[in-house]
Every structure is written in C-alpha cells, then in structure tokens.
C-alpha cells in the first residue's frame, strides 16, 4: 500500500504493508534511524515519536493508522526544544545513548504540558522509558533544570512586558 505521511513537517510517500509499524517505516524506509528498536512490545519507550503532538510507541503504531496525522521524531526535536537538548548534552545525561531519543521525546512531551513538573510528575511521565545504563537521576535533574530555565525566562519576559 502507498501511504502519504507527514513526517517532521515534510510530506513523504512509502509503499509498505498496512500493518507495518511506524518504527520500521521511519528506520527502513525514511532513513530516520534516531527512533530506536528496543523491545517491539511497547515496554521500553526507545521508539517514542509524536503523533499529532501526543507521544506514541512507534513499534505499536501501524502506518495505516497515522496516514493523515502529523508525525514528529527525535531528528526534529531540537528545533522546538533547543534548551532541552542543550541541557541533556551539557549535563552528560546519555551514557550509551540508545534509549535517549525516547527519553528526550518523553521529557519534551512532559514539559509541553507541565511547565513545573514535580518528582511525582516526572515519575509518571518517564517510567515508561527504560534506560539500562541507569541515567535516571540525570534525566530527572535535566528536566527540573529546563523547567527552571523556562520559568526564569517566562518571568523576565513578563517583567519586560
């Protein structure tokens, strides 16, 4: 089947079986390998993408279900969340890095809907993403740091206004 997809703001076409998960459409057919295969069962979160702004496990998302939706991947994340990416990098959050695409996507989604997440909010939002290297404490600290930065910036913008 031929599908027209909107991926990272671009319209692309692929010819694949309808049950093909977006994970493999991105990796095999669109050369977007930042989205990772970790389990194929929706357990680990390494394959996290956005579908119409909501996080989704791309290994559990058949291409046929998202043909008219806006798909966004890790490759585009830094455009909308430059501070998050910068903090991740500067704080040496990644170790092997393989799960970090999914971690960043989940963290960005959390910050999009909650500008000052508590530890409990972080637990709730990030527990679906496994990191075998064990970078959790740095992920938590990085999310708090980005939230604090955004709050300061917002505060100074309000002051200026």
């Amino acid at each position: 089947m031929r599908y027209e997809l909107s991926v990272n703001g671009q319209t692309v076409a692929v010819d694949v079986a309808p049950d093909t998960p977006m994970l493999w459409v991105l990796r095999d057919h669109l050369d977007l390998t930042g989205t990772k295969y970790g389990c194929g069962g929706g357990y680990c979160g390494a394959c996290t993408i956005y579908v119409d702004g909501n996080i989704a496990r791309s290994c559990q998302t058949p291409v046929s279900t998202v043909a008219d939706m806006a798909i966004s991947t890790i490759e585009a994340l830094h455009e909308n969340h430059p501070k998050l990416v910068e903090v991740w990098e500067a704080n040496n959050v990644p170790q092997c890095g393989y799960c970090q695409s999914g971690q960043l996507m989940a963290a960005a989604a959390l910050l999009d809907r909650n500008d000052s997440p508590s530890d409990a909010d972080i637990d709730a939002a990030m527990t679906g993403n496994i990191c075998r290297c064990g970078t959790y404490t740095r992920i938590r600290a990085a999310i708090h740091e980005v939230a604090a930065y955004d709050a300061t910036r917002k505060g100074s913008e309000e002051d200026a206004a």
Partner: peptide, 22 residues
C-alpha cells in the same frame, strides 16, 4: 568533567549504532 563527544549526535537522533547501518 568534560562533556562527552557523542552527546550532541545522540541528543539529535544522529548517534550511529550497529542497527542503524545501511
């Protein structure tokens, strides 16, 4: 405490692993 050299690629989905080679 130097920042790791591959962090930038990793945080942009550009880290290249065995499974990514084509």
């Amino acid at each position: 405490p130097v920042v790791h050299v591959d962090n930038g690629d990793i945080a942009r989905g550009k880290g290249n692993y065995g499974a990514d080679v084509k």
